[in-house]
Design a protein around this nucleic acid. Sequence first.
DNA 1: TGAAATGTTGGGGCG
DNA 2: ACGCCCCAACATTTC
Length: 496
Amino acid sequence: MKNETVILWFRRDFRLEDNVALEAALEAGRVVIPVFIWCPDEESPWQPIGAARVWMHHSLDALDAALRKKGNRLLVLKAKNYFDALVKLAAEHKVGQVFANSIYEPIWLDKDKKLSQKLSKEGIELKLSTGALLYDPFGIKTAQGNPFQVFTPYWRACLQRDSAPGSPIFEPEKIPALSQHPAGVDLNDLNLLPKVKWDTGIVETWTPGLDGAKTTLDAFIDKALRNYAETRNLPCEVGTSRLSPYLHFGEISPRRVWHEVSEHLHSTHALRQDSSKVHGMKATNSGEVYLRELGWREFAHQVLCNFPNTPTKPLREDFAHFPFRKDAEALKAWHKGQTGYPIVDAGMRELWHTGWMHNRVRMVVASFLVKHLLLPWQDGARWFWDTLVDADLANNTMGWQWSAGCGADAAPYFRIFNPILQGEKFDPQGTYVRKWVPELAKLPDEFIHQPWEAPSLILHASKITLDVNYPAPIIEHAKARQRALAALSKVRGKEP
DNA sequence: TGAAATGTTGGGGCG
DNA sequence: ACGCCCCAACATTTC
């Protein structure tokens, strides 16, 4: 017989569609209490902060609105710890089962394990479901039984598994509620929104929440997917999916994204059928290139789960004692987008303003921090953590270790992005730079990525005085490159 | 999911 | 016609 009442604990799965825990809760209980518990003390040091909190606030608001359409609402609690909050809520409503979706991060997996044991002593079952990932991060292993550390064979192994990701679950018609909703706190009392209004750019740029997620996916498939392989690298265009924050907070499931994208590709005959392509040897068309990016998300979680120290420690140990510099001034210039390299500064300012940065530019600014400035990748990761709406421990860690050359399948140490060439290649008209670094807007295309090379007449006509209204480069590219090669070659291990 | 240096080739100008 | 040089275009290697 069904329990009368069950708890559905939302953590990072703010959706009603394709939510495995929700489905399980509805099967087990007659009445569901959907709850979000805010315990900032428990989540340190990688709790949501800054831009991600802003996002989370609006996302929870959207989730509540969606639950109300299903005849329920979101109970918001603020607590010292999850255990006390859950025990108290369960006792008040005679609940024996708590349903939730697993979060594939070592801290959460560990927390859930202990919590589950403690709760069971109180007669409460914690029922965990999957759904945050397409593949079990502990389920894909090399022939030797080790976790993969190189992407391509990992992804091949995923795609060659017997079962492709299944179809998403439909959202329920109704989520039966208690006749009297339990009293919680007001969402605003969590103080997720900043006191000083620095979040206007985020609010203008994004529509957080489950509806925004669907709109974003539809728009991507409709407008950008066809040319994804080419336009995804152009930061001035909307060529990427922009789904990262929605995926991070579980406002849409990776299974839904996978399903819709492959569905669309089959219906438009854009996905080639020959097996060497389908099996991911080489991504030759836009659809496969995009699904491969979902693969990188899987890979990042797989690496994080199997190597739990990677958020702060390099995976390749020869990097552990690399003599990164300490240079507060340079770090600050990077933070503020005042390095004197237009593509770098544009990216850092886009990040500050919108809580997001185009992926191509993320690679450029990361390479610049680590290789040109020789500052620790951990400092970059921390800044991204505070400023990104899509701040995700697995993806952020993977990205930074990749850029620094110390991670899984990492860029070799000698791969140093030239910020001028990257700019000219991927922002040839300087559209992106002009948008985010408006003081350079009047510069001709020829000099937009290297204002210091412009003749003084042109600088004057463009109303630019270097080091007055736009910085001269904080370091010369050629020198920085030489310095990085010299420093990094000392730590290289078996890599050439 | 680089960039720079170095090497090779082939067409054209020119003595 | 021929050899020579230049150099762009492309390929390879090196960092």
